[in-house]
Design a protein around this nucleic acid. Structure first.
Lengths: 224, 224
DNA sequence: TTATGTGAATATCTTCACAGCG
DNA sequence: CGCTGTGAAGATATTCACATAA
């Protein structure tokens, strides 16, 4: 399978959207879809869809379109999702609880399977079937659970410490919800979801009116 | 104020980070910072910082650096943040409640000031000082509150309807947390925060190991 | 005929490197 | 000097347009 080594980053993010869309279409019983129709659903041009999909596989059939079942398989493989991924949540505040309660993170291919917090009042409580453990036990939680990813949902002031702890515990990728940049050593992936930034950018876009040229879609997070 | 018309999109997202960083430095009593040091804090190259900041203003002083106070003002103006922005939340489930409880959205320049839901059991409840109103009253809530932005935090299946309702109510920008693409008419801004996508991309990045070339930072969301 | 896959053209973004201001 | 602002170069990403396969 010629999963090309160098998929452009923006394309990689879109591939995740294709995957979800294809899964959805597949469960709806749609066996096949063209780049045109996929693009329409996701707000992308047909050319873009074809280019992106060509990065991971020759999964289309000329004159017909893409076979959803094949595409789902190929995309999952491209994302390393043929095996499940386990994540630990650090920080069980408002955002943390929302994440724990969010259905897709209980069962899906990449799931939050454990949570830790430093507040004694929170430790021991249950959320979406997981019991919150102490911050100190993070290392053990990670080891015991075979956990590879960490999610940071602590206040900004504690985010860097949380990141350090996660790295020390052996996690290989971090998703940070705190509104600060965290630094991680080379070799650890780290992306950032910042809701305040999103809202601000939205305000800016509205403020600037339509004058921003109307490019097609984008999905995002920052990483290094 | 020569706020140049065409700020590249990626630059615009970073400007939001500069703004936050500068606000933070300012409250810490740091009067001035160089592109070098700002870049170090945000994981960006000095050249990038200079280029980005040059889009909004000649706010730097050669040989010295950027004056934090000036920069904050200029950036706020660039973002249309010299006036406050008000947003309404649609959908008071787990994510919705987290957003309502999230301190920065209560007070800051762009705040969530109202919430609606269609579940009678939720309507009337209070979260972070806002009382949840009925979905039907959305139009009136928007009008009464002078609201310009909408935040969608409903299940995927209801997201498009929520978007339609928001547009009908006269909102000019939408931030969508539901894991589906929503379509909005020309002239309405719409960006998308998709936590599942982020986690998946993180898994992919880890799966692919370090082989992805180590570019510098990025922040993100999709929009059109 | 329909719809993919892809070179080539274009548009966008980032980095380099240095002139020039304070 | 030190550090910004910016042309020009380089790298990435997107779109076009068409040969090609079913």
């Amino acid at each position: 399978m010629p999963t090309r080594s160098h998929i452009p980053r923006p394309a990689a993010r879109r591939l995740s959207l294709y995957l979800r869309e294809c899964e959805s279409l597949l469960t709806q019983g749609v066996p096949t879809a063209s780049s045109e129709s996929l693009g329409a659903r996701l707000g992308l041009s047909a050319a873009q869809v074809r280019r992106d999909l060509a990065y991971v596989a020759q999964a289309g059939q000329r004159g017909v379109g893409y076979d959803m079942a094949t595409l789902v398989t190929v995309l999952q493989e491209g994302f390393g999702l043929e095996r499940p991924w386990r994540a630990v949540l650090v920080g069980v505040g408002n955002i943390g609880r929302a994440l724990l309660s969010y259905a897709p993170f209980r069962e899906s291919r990449v799931a939050i399977v454990a949570a830790v917090d430093c507040d004694p009042a929170t430790i021991g409580s249950q959320w979406g079937g997981r019991t919150v453990e102490s911050m100190q036990s993070l290392g053990e939680v990670v080891r015991r659970g075979g956990i590879e990813l960490g999610v940071i949902a602590v206040p900004a002031s504690a985010a860097q410490l949380a990141a350090d702890d996660l790295v020390a515990a052996g996690v290989r990728g971090i998703l940070n919800f705190a509104p600060v940049q965290v630094t991680v050593p080379e070799g650890t992936a780290c992306s950032h979801v910042d809701v305040s930034v999103e809202l601000r950018c939205l305000a800016m876009e509205v403020a600037l009116g339509g004058e921003h040229r109307p490019r097609r879609g984008r999905v995002g997070a920052r990483s290094r």
